[in-house]
Design a protein around this nucleic acid. Structure first.
Lengths: 196, 196, 196, 196
DNA sequence: AATGAATGAGGTTTCATTCAT
DNA sequence: GATGAATGAAACCTCATTCAT
């Protein structure tokens, strides 16, 4: 089908664009380079996206969709809140390997530091499910977790995870000597935060 | 004195530049606009800074210096670790009102999403004291705080504070209904993290 | 073929650039005007040459190559030294009509009054053959011409020719009333210089 | 006298400007640098000259006046044409040491390669006496020298001298190994040109 | 009279976008 | 459908010139 091919090509472009935008931000990212890395001509990009801005927004939208799909799966599993929490955290760290550009793009937005088209971008990210918030809120309701302002705590835990992702290479921050220490450390933190 | 005036003007430009760079990042920030907002001509900027890059680095350097001055004062006070910690957190929140652009610039760097001149920028931020890390490390040594990896925990607490600063306007994040709930909530979190 | 077209366009730009640079020198020459006179957009220049400097050097290089091609042909002819000398002089004057900008550019350099990138420019002009020097040196060796320092004399004769080119429009210099007097006059001079 | 001081200062500025313009040409020469090298403030230049162009023209005018003064002295001496010719040539070479910038400026104009304000500049140089032309013309009239087009020959001899001035550093031109060979060589050339 | 801080026109260069092939 | 040569708006930066002191 033409449609399928078109969809396929769109996604390929978005994949490459995500890397570019993640690495360089909207302004510095270069349409030509995205085309080259996609193995297509510069003009072809414009057959799929009218402007650079549109490509940017489409890229972010794709990220949100992918995230949400994963979140959906995790949230709807039939396990205890604590197990779900641990699972989400592990899944999040696993994203590093395969979805790094998407993570970077999200962090770039979440920490608000590439405020191009803030309204449009925010609208897209408004559709991002926050499984951490949801699971913590549920846990608090069930009396399994203890924290005031559970929704905010969800974001706080999220920020912890982000700071501890070595692939984001947060500068000037000395991390663990041994990689294996990370997950236990995170679980220690999170447990402290969610229990008395 | 000429020197005083020159220094004064430099600082005024830096003040405006900090806002521009904080809001838009290096690439998108516009020298012309910085000039206009400073109430001076475009060329005048170049009397004080040779290039846009130099202005950017000088701006960051000024931020670091100001931060360090404050940190120095706090760290050297003769009070208990817990009191010092509370003081630092409060001071940090107070920065919001007056030093917002500087905070944004730092966050932009810390979350690594404006990778212009990474070496030069990182070198400047290497000189940034981390009072939270220092006080937590000291507290752990004294047996007042409990956490593995105290340095990392310092950064984690920092990221909490950042996420909870309403002026940074982290997008898509619902914060407290009432402003007064913020500090108690933060202290609750931090106490949980630093005590068993 | 793409290559041919590209080469062709490059040459067209160089042709126009040669005129601009010849008339105004490197600094005063205006990229925008070169584009306009070439009938192309400003940005197009930069598809073929990365910088104004690169365009300048390429222009000079093209001049040298063209000169050398002509020199080669003349030098390798199987005629007597005197005939060769006369031929070179006539050819030189013929250059006026078609290669005026190139002549000007060379003169600008040779009389050393546009010292932009002296190293790079000199390196290019080092590759310029000096057929007058060569033929005079050969003639002296064969005993046909008489002059001390034949190589220097080659340059001297060259300077005579330059001064007598009306198209160079050397200022404040009254030339011949009748064009036809020029070549006989030059031959008279050169013969005097090369014979006792 | 105020007038004398003013005149004096004007001359000092012109002296420095001559060097700058000679070395860099009109466009590249820098008003600020001229001021600094003159030991005065940038604004002061504008008390004496309304524009950069005016300073340039004044500088050229001063050169012409100085040349003419020297020429006058030489031309009016009561010696034979041949002796006068030799004297002029020697004087010309002596100019190298003390009047190099002026020589460069003149050569820059004469070889027509900095055609800023061609009309104004040419008008000034129109007032430049050409002692070589004059003496050769006189010599031909008296039957001492032999050449057709004596005025043109004057210019030709002039161009020889210019090419042989090592201080002009004509590029890509190998000159004499020993400085002393220069004047005899020139006299050999000139004698050949002016005698049958 | 002398200054030099301030200015902004003008020049080079980049790059998203168009469109003829 | 796909391309990439061409474009020109927009950004940085320089420097002759002005003018308040």
């Amino acid at each position: 089908m033409i449609t399928t091919n078109q969809s396929q090509k769109r996604l390929e472009i978005i994949e490459v664009a995500a890397q570019e935008f993640a690495e360089k931000g909207f302004q510095t990212a270069n349409i030509n380079e995205i085309a080259t890395k996609s193995g297509i001509g510069k003009g072809t990009i414009y057959l799929y996206f009218n402007t650079k801005k549109e490509l940017y927004l489409a890229t972010i939208q794709a990220l949100v969709d992918q995230f949400n799909e994963l979140s959906e799966r995790l949230i709807s599993m039939e396990i205890s809140s604590s197990e779900k929490l641990a699972l989400i955290i592990e899944s999040f760290f696993e994203l590093e390997r395969e979805r790094l550009p998407f993570l970077k793009l999200w962090a770039r937005h979440q920490f608000h530091h590439d405020p191009v088209f803030p309204e449009e971008v925010s609208e897209i990210f408004n559709g991002l499910r926050q499984p951490l918030c949801e699971i913590i809120e549920q846990g608090v309701e069930k009396g399994v977790f203890f924290t005031s302002h559970p929704h905010v705590t969800g974001y706080i835990v999220l920020s912890m995870l982000v700071m501890l992702m070595p692939s984001l290479q947060l500068p000037n921050m000395v991390l663990f000597e041994r990689e294996e220490e990370r997950i236990p450390y995170v679980m220690e933190l999170v447990n402290k935060v969610l229990h008395s």
